[in-house]
Design a protein around this nucleic acid. Sequence first.
RNA 1: GGAGAGGUGGCCGAGUGGCUUAAGGCGGCGGUUUGCUAAACCGUUGUACGGUCAAAAGCUGUACCGGGGGUUCGAAUCCCCCCCUCUCCGCCA
Length: 452
Amino acid sequence: MAAGVRPSKPGGPGAGRSERPKLEAMLELSYVREHLAEVEAMLANRGATVDLTRFRELDQRRRALILQGDQLKQERNQASEEVARRKRGPERDAPETAALIARNRALGEKITALDAESKAIESEFDPILLSLPNRPSAATPVGRSADDNQEVRRWGQARTFDFTPQPHWDLGAKLGILDLDAAARISGARFAVYRGAGARLERALANFMLDRHTAAHGYTEVLPPSLVNSQSLRGTGQLPKFAADLFKCEGADLWLIPTAEVPLTNLYAGQVLDEAALPVCVVGYTPCFRSEAGAYGRDVRGIMRQHQFQKVELVKIAHPEQSAADHEKLTRDAEAILQELELPYRVMNLCTGDLGFSASQTYDLEVWLPSQNAFREISSCSNFSDFQARRANIRFRRQGKNKTELAHTINGSGLAIGRTWIAVVENYQQADGGVVIPQALRPYMGGLERMQ
RNA sequence: GGAGAGGUGGCCGAGUGGCUUAAGGCGGCGGUUUGCUAAACCGUUGUACGGUCAAAAGCUGUACCGGGGGUUCGAAUCCCCCCCUCUCCGCCA
């Protein structure tokens, strides 16, 4: 037997028992079993309700079935070996050999029945385990809703206007840089058409961000596919629970990515990385597609909430002992963009009640929007600890060790282009409806200083 | 889309129904010897889920040869479906 680790095969992270492919759980089964009370408390903090009594029953039943099945299989394996031995010798046609085969056949039927029972148990058991969200880190404050999020720091000063600031959709329409009517005709609601300097602004923002993250912050630029298979979406946690938020291609196992996090993180699915290679830092610019089911009447005007938007995404595969520091650094990398654009913002540490399903800690960056007189999310930077890594089977090997360990994954928007577009247009608007181009963007706008 | 060839462990690669406990090599780790960025020799080597144990270690069982299903007392090996890779053809930015 050779050394090292077998990577998972294409087609499934970690092939487990043949009759039971490895469950892509977020939390380790043995952890849940041994810390039931802790897990229940964690779920309560998150405001989730999961029936762990049923979990315990099913777990016990499941283990009993595995034990029984494994014992029968052992018997069958031993008997088959005996048959093989006899077939090679003079006992090949003895009546005992035939009897042995007959007995083994009966054993096989029992095993088939047991396996069917196991499958039935697992069809109820697996969804419970899959529905468990990640454990919030100690740095995550306990709270019920977004109102309990903690402000960590604030940067910049909200500009004072000597006129009433207009919303971006009015500014955009008057400047001829944003055409939502045209978007509605060719696609429908929640799509945008950018024109002229507006389209160029979108492109300038993307190029500016990519240049900063690659040259100044040390990320490697990656241009991934915008369509991915369902396995990748399970790896990062969007499936199976959040299928309703996604667009799926008809007649193929392909989905439009809701964020570059999916392809960028899955670049390393099934891989074993060298400890020295950590953290792996990649940045990608992609369109993002969200069906936004359940968004109801929120942000119906303008381009705040779209079915398609563009985003520059930062992803790190990190060492478990460094992931908290790497998360901080990634957040600062995203903040640097806002600072260079001179856009006021604040950093929020999300509480347990507002934390995403897969995250253990999240900082939201909220940019100031004058027309709303409020801070609005423009980036979400999360540490997923080993949650995604377990599902996507992303591992690393410590120097001089044979054993592999789960890595940690981190990602954050650096930044969402559409919302940055809004922030620039609204914060830099003038009394006459023109928009001044921020200094940092001018080289990317062909020297343009003002949209008029 | 069509035809053909393939997919075996960290990597390469043998293996056409039971004497395979997946040969052999490379790599990794540990050691011995020699001495100077090295070589030779010996040993060792993955994952998941169970059992045992207070726990860990250890011991032990089952499963895993691209994925799923089937045939069989018994499948890496035979059959069916699917995915991916390569070569050629077709189409195409």
